[in-house]
């Protein structure tokens, strides 16, 4: 159970719907642990600024998380959270373990364009 202010994805159907109906999507899949909470916090901060990006999080331990776990770009990941960036439904970037605001912003700017 994630305790964040970000919209959660709880089913595979929701993952598909989010990816189909949004051009730029960032999904962070993790737990309420020390490496994940900072990334969720960064997303909460950036959600207001990057209004052209859809931010979602997902509990790593639910069955629907298989979608993110099985993304080929995450095959070598061995650190939570798994954070995946999608453009038009395609993976454009993925990171493993803790990331700070600058690192997340660098990916958002590069893949989706700077904040509006």
């Amino acid at each position: 159970m994630l305790n964040t202010n970000i919209k959660h994805i709880e089913t595979e159907q929701e993952v598909k719907e989010v990816l189909e109906s949004n051009e730029n999507v960032m999904i962070c899949c993790g737990r309420m642990g020390p490496m994940c909470v900072p990334v969720f916090g960064v997303m909460e901060d950036l959600e207001q600024i990057y209004q052209h990006v859809t931010f979602r999080d997902q509990d790593f331990d639910i069955p629907a998380a298989d979608f993110i776990r099985n993304v080929p770009e995450c095959a070598s990941f061995m650190g939570l959270p798994f954070t995946v960036y999608f453009k038009n439904g395609k993976v454009v970037a993925a990171t493993s373990s803790i990331q700070n605001k600058d690192q997340v912003m660098a990916i958002l700017d590069r893949e989706f364009g700077k904040q509006l």
Partner: peptide, 16 residues
């Protein structure tokens, strides 16, 4: 880092 190197045993231990 995140691909075998970790600073958090409780977070990432289960991957090993």
């Amino acid at each position: 880092y995140g691909k075998g190197v970790s600073g958090c045993a409780t977070c990432d231990g289960a991957f090993f």
